[in-house]
């Protein structure tokens, strides 16, 4: 029983990071029809930014709450800034062209950014100091020892879901974004500059990915240059399974993938969880291309 509880929480925490990256991807694809490969690299860059802030605190005592919040804030700002610049400098020039070119530019950017990080800090993992309460203090739930970090990750993901939903539902920008997901041409025909929403959503996606990067680094106690690629692949699964432009779909998909991974890896065979996740993605693309989010727009 305690194993099951433990795995549920671990699965939810991993799913939380998938959601942080995947929700941004889902909104970006839904609105802009751009499949971005760059957000994985933003996640890695922000994980390093977080580590850069945290590394000066001692490994034994761990950073204070203040430093931790500062690291998270820096992650959000760096991720948002990177995404903002990408959209303004690189993607704007390509909106008249094929979607493939936009995909290629983000892939090239991700490739370069990871290479740059490799050049500065090398491919080896760096230890990330975490406060003792984050990883070592546990709470007993039905006999399972759950680390506080799990609650933090899950809490952040839930708060983010609520905040983004509120933003989409109750603000004017959110209204334009929702309308743009439904029918971009119509929004443009009504005289609204939909490109401002593109910038906004791309930046929000980057900021959220940055937050995910710092949290993932804290959760794993380590950063290296490959984490972004790994999370990006699962964020793609979340995007496909959840459906484009659907936040709730992304949340359900992230939850499902996180849990599936933990349980299959533990009970059957290490690696099976990952394999099943990718099979799930392939099956969704072929059988239900609109995803669980249920919007009848095909992922063409």
């Amino acid at each position: 029983m305690s194993n099951v509880i433990l795995m549920i929480f671990t699965g939810l925490s991993v799913g939380a990071v998938y959601f942080l990256l995947g929700s941004g991807l889902a909104l970006i694809f839904g609105l802009m029809r751009v499949l971005t490969f760059a957000h994985g690299a933003y996640l890695t860059a922000c994980a390093y930014a977080g580590w850069f802030i945290l590394r000066h605190s001692s490994l034994a005592a761990g950073p204070s709450i203040g430093t931790l919040l500062l690291a998270l804030l820096v992650g959000v700002v760096v991720g948002g800034a990177l995404a903002f610049l990408t959209e303004r400098v690189l993607l704007r020039a390509l909106y008249q062209r094929d979607h493939l070119d936009q995909l290629l530019v983000t892939a090239g950017l991700g490739f370069s950014l990871v290479a740059l990080l490799n050049g500065i800090w090398g491919p080896d993992s760096r230890a990330v100091p975490t406060p003792p309460w984050f990883t070592r203090t546990t709470t007993d739930i039905f006999g399972a020892h759950i680390a506080r970090g799990d609650f933090v990750l899950i809490g952040v993901a839930v708060l983010l879901l609520i905040a983004l939903e509120a933003f989409l539902k109750h603000t004017r920008h959110g209204l334009v974004v929702r309308a743009g997901v439904e029918n971009r041409e119509m929004v443009r025909a009504l005289g609204i500059d939909v490109r401002r929403s593109f910038t906004l959503i791309f930046t929000v996606g980057g900021a959220v990915a940055g937050l995910g990067g710092v949290l993932a680094a804290l959760y794993a106690n380590a950063v290296n240059t490959t984490i972004g690629d790994t999370y990006l692949l699962y964020a793609f699964i979340v995007l496909v399974v959840g459906g484009l432009g659907s936040l709730r779909g992304a949340a359900i998909a992230a939850l499902a993938v996180g849990l599936l991974q933990q349980f299959a890896n533990f009970y059957v065979n290490p690696g099976l969880g990952e394999i099943l996740s990718f099979i799930l993605m392939g099956a969704m693309l072929l059988l239900r291309p609109e995803g669980v989010g249920g919007k009848k727009i095909r992922l063409i």
Partner: peptide
């Protein structure tokens, strides 16, 4: 190829990842 364009990219990506995971494990 039943799916088209971006979906084709994603399915091939998934297939290649299956192999990468199998080799990694």
């Amino acid at each position: 190829l039943r799916a088209s364009l971006i979906a084709y990219s994603m399915v091939t990506l998934a297939a290649a990842q299956l192999m990468a995971i199998a080799i990694g494990q």
